[in-house]
């Protein structure tokens, strides 16, 4: 196996009601609790889970947009958890983001050209002219025309805006793109165009993705491996085909129980387990999934199952006491 591009180890992130002079009281939100995973060069790891389970928080913490409350991030073996300023530059250059809301992610006051050029300006790449050429090239790569450089974000359609966001992300030839639900705000017809583009980019440029989604069809289309999150933790981590064929965590199973997915026989969109998601301010003891779990036994409410390999499939992990039972 190749050396991982990025490794997260025991990442923890809490949100506290911010302390001001007059503060509105609020309990601590345990958004991400000790999550570990890694992404290899050129690999796409999909991160799935219900709304509010901490996907965005995890991605942003790993991308060093939020300071971690615990754990470390290693990039090409180097610990970047505490890196700042100059030390962080290579990381910033190699890791780029694509956001869910293609409108919110583009500064409304900048032209498309300025938006795509910004990473080049920040990292002092080339001069004004060469940057212009590079921007035109990037816009062509994502299927926009260079003539659109002088337009403002609101003059583009949703899909075009997301292309713009992607053009900005690839301008510096990054190695990893953290994409947070990049297509879920788009029309279904546009979704497949953007997904195709992203997959082609990965193929042509050897890009790796940390790809957040809650659409299993998207996972099926783009992912090499899948991490399933529940209440701030990864409960199952597996290569895609094995996961679809034989999910081992009861939570993964309920996610998949629904509409058929072409080629894999199963598809779920937004369908999850019965019952309310417990609040991340008050995570159940034992296995966090046990109150909603159809397979739960007494041990589940007392003992927390670690994320460990499944018998006979060392590359797959699940955090369930019954991980070795096939469906």
């Amino acid at each position: 196996m190749t050396a991982p591009l990025i490794e997260a180890e025991g990442i923890t992130k809490r949100f506290e009601a911010s302390g001001g002079l007059l503060r509105r009281s609020g309990p601590t939100v345990y958004a991400v609790n000790g999550v570990s995973f890694s992404v290899a060069p050129g690999e796409t790891l999909a991160l799935i889970g219900e709304s509010g389970c901490g996907k965005t928080t995890l991605a942003r913490t790993v991308a060093r947009l939020y300071p971690a409350d615990g754990g470390r991030v290693r990039f090409k073996g180097e610990d970047v958890t505490q890196a700042r300023g100059k030390a962080l530059k290579p990381f910033r250059r190699a890791v780029q983001m694509v956001f869910q809301d293609p409108y919110g992610a583009l500064d409304p006051r900048l032209t498309a050209g300025a938006i795509v050029a910004e990473p080049l300006v920040i990292h002092r790449v080339g001069n004004r002219r060469s940057r212009r050429d590079r921007v035109a090239e990037m816009m062509a790569t994502v299927g926009l025309s260079a003539a659109q450089m002088t337009r403002y974000p609101h003059e583009f359609s949703g899909g075009q805006r997301q292309r713009l966001g992607i053009a900005r992300a690839i301008a510096l030839d990054p190695e990893l793109i953290v994409a947070d639900e990049p297509v879920s705000a788009l029309d279904v017809s546009v979704q497949s165009q953007i997904l195709n583009l992203m997959r082609d980019l990965a193929r042509d440029r050897g890009l790796a993705y940390l790809f957040i989604t809650h659409d299993l069809a998207v996972v099926n289309f783009i992912a090499d491996r899948v991490a399933v999150m529940y209440l701030g933790e990864i409960v199952e981590l597996s290569d895609r085909d094995a996961l679809f064929a034989d999910p081992r965590h009861p939570y993964t199973r309920t996610l998949m129980r629904a509409v058929p997915v072409p080629g894999h026989g199963k598809r779920a969109r937004g369908a999850g387990p019965a019952g309310e998601v417990p609040s991340p301010t008050d995570i159940p003891a034992g296995c966090p999934f046990h109150p909603r779990c159809p397979r739960a036994e007494a041990v589940c409410s007392t003992e927390k199952p670690p994320l460990e390999p499944i018998a006979g499939q060392p590359q797959r992990r699940a955090a369930c006491h019954f991980r070795d039972e096939a469906a």
């Binding site: 991308a63 947009l65 983001m97 956001f99 992610a105 500064d107 920040i122 990292h123 966001g165």
Partner: peptide, 10 residues
């Protein structure tokens, strides 16, 4: 998010 985007670019 556009501010986050700028931060993520360094």
């Amino acid at each position: 998010e556009y501010v986050l985007a700028a931060v993520s670019q360094g």
